[in-house]
Simulated assay, not measured.
Amino acid sequence: MTDTKAAHVEGTHTGLHSEQGARRGEHPGRSRNPVIKVRDIAWLEFEKPDLMRTEAFARAFGFHTVLSSPTELQLRGTEPGAPCVIVRRGTRSRFAGVAFAADDEIDVLRLADALSAPTRALPESIGGLSTDLVDPSGVPVRVVAGTHALPPLPAQEPLLLNTGRDVRRINATQRPRRVPARVQRLGHVVLQSTKYRQTLDWYLDNLGMIVSDFLFFPGQRDRGPTMSFIRCDRGATPADHHTLALALGPANRYVHSAYQVADLDALAAGGEYLADRGYTRSWGIGRHIQGSQLFDYWRDPDGFLVEHFADGDAFDADVAPGWAPFTASGLSQWGPPVSKDFLGTDPRSARHELISMLSALRDDNEFTARRLVGLLKVATS
């Protein structure tokens, strides 16, 4: 543990969100003196060759289009703010980076100075200032401030529910239509890294993020965590259980991103709309354990995994990290068994995953042979 890390937080675990807290000497899940503290995730960037196909899926998934040109697509939710997804035309489909929002431009300048990184004005359509960084896994990371706030759009209201003897819907039926679930906002992104610990510390030390939950490979807690669910530190103001999740794996890659919708009915009816149009569900519907979200995962036409979610946890800065084993059965409280597509063990991706594992074992990183054994246990545990 570096001297920039806070002292261990043993004894401060509330037990409210995980059966286990940290043991003495384990990673504290936060930095003692971060450079800045980002307040939220801003947007994700992708490159794709077919923007018309991308926009068709985006509309079915529940996004609203801000900008549609032959070279760029900007997508947003109903909440005010900047676009939450930016897609540029490219020769191949790839994840191109993540942007986080700082409180103000002073924070952007402070971070840029600390990391000897340049700053630049963002395009007029978005506005504001950015410093462009690269995390230890090679993922482009922008930290931005001063962006234009798009006005709110009409929201999809949660349904009025009768629960037991609490009867609020009288002389009225419940008939949610099969329509796209209106995306409210970008919630989080999940990334895989061959340099998990180094990358985790980079986000904690530089962006001031804090860990909500750690997972460790079965039987390998003594070797440290291999996944972390990380939230923004807003002090006494609650933040999403995770804005970023990092996992150790055989490749540096995007895993999935998640977008909030109004409630379970919006999520379920929106899923039926997607299924009716031939899109592929990866896994769902269910409720997660870490974060508690209702979830439903889909594959877009380029193979990227995207999630509708509702009813996620919100923690303030006082909640200490929970610790739990990383198992397939531990990914949900209820719902169908986790799919091979979601785990990356179906025949379509198995060969690619095997090549990634063999390649990672030849490189100098944290994905060792023993870690491989632990990862293989996840899918069957």
Rank of each mutant, 00 (worst) to 15 (best):
M1G: 15
T2K: 09
T4A: 15
T12P: 00
G15D: 09
S18G: 11
S18A: 14
R23H: 14
R24M: 06
R24D: 14
R30E: 15
S31M: 00
I36E: 10
K48G: 01
P49F: 12
M52V: 08
R53E: 15
R53K: 12
R53D: 11
T54Q: 13
E55T: 06
A56K: 02
G62M: 02
V66N: 05
L75D: 12
R76E: 15
G77S: 05
T78E: 10
G81E: 10
A82Q: 06
C84E: 08
C84Y: 04
V85C: 07
V87Q: 06
R89A: 15
R94W: 04
A96D: 09
G97N: 05
A99L: 02
D107A: 09
D113W: 05
L115E: 11
P118M: 07
I126V: 15
G128Q: 03
L129A: 10
V134M: 14
D135I: 00
P136N: 02
H148M: 05
P152E: 13
E157D: 13
N171R: 03
V179N: 09
R182G: 04
L186E: 07
H188K: 02
T194K: 07
I210E: 15
F214L: 02
Q220H: 10
G224A: 09
T226N: 11
F229T: 02
R231H: 06
T243F: 11
L246C: 04
D263A: 02
A268Y: 09
G270N: 05
E272P: 00
A275S: 07
G286F: 02
Q290I: 04
R299V: 01
D300W: 04
F309I: 03
D311H: 01
D311T: 00
D318V: 08
D318L: 10
P321T: 01
W323F: 15
F326K: 03
A328T: 06
S329K: 13
S332K: 07
S332Y: 09
S339D: 13
T345C: 08
S349D: 15
L358Y: 09
T368P: 04
R371K: 06
K377N: 14
K377M: 08
S381F: 09
